[in-house]
């Protein structure tokens, strides 16, 4: 149920896929065989105001910083699905 208006209805909303890094952690230990380490975990705040747990890709661990502008891309999972992960925005990457 929506805690703001009480509705039980739901719908899908298109998001821009753009946001900024709110926080992050470079995970070293323990290591789960399903992931490549170090894992760059992050909280990304989308432009629409939603915060989500995700991974950062296409950059090195020491390049991560809070406030970094990022955009979504999708990574396949073992069961044939995909999850949203984020990479530095193209404009910023060209600089």
């Amino acid at each position: 149920m929506c805690p703001h208006c009480g509705t039980l209805a739901w719908g899908a909303v298109d998001l821009s896929g753009r946001g900024t890094v709110y926080s992050f952690a470079v995970l070293h230990h323990p290591q789960n065989p399903q992931f490549d380490y170090p894992v760059i975990a992050a909280l990304v705040e989308l432009d629409e105001g939603i915060r989500l747990v995700t991974n950062l890709v296409e950059l090195l661990p020491d390049e991560v910083e809070i406030g970094l502008p990022v955009e979504v891309c999708f990574e396949p999972t073992a069961d044939g699905m995909a999850v949203p992960v984020f990479r530095p925005r193209v404009l910023e990457r060209r600089q």
Binding site: Y22, S23, F24, A25, L27, P30, N32, Q34, F35, V39, A41, A42, L43, L52, V53, T54, N55, I66, T77, V83, V85
Partner: peptide
């Protein structure tokens, strides 16, 4: 919502708050 991203442990969960 953490597990698909390898955020599997108490240290990993709390690290995201701690870095901030």
């Amino acid at each position: 919502w953490c597990m698909p991203f390898g955020v599997l442990t108490p240290a990993a969960w709390m690290a995201l708050n701690s870095t901030r």
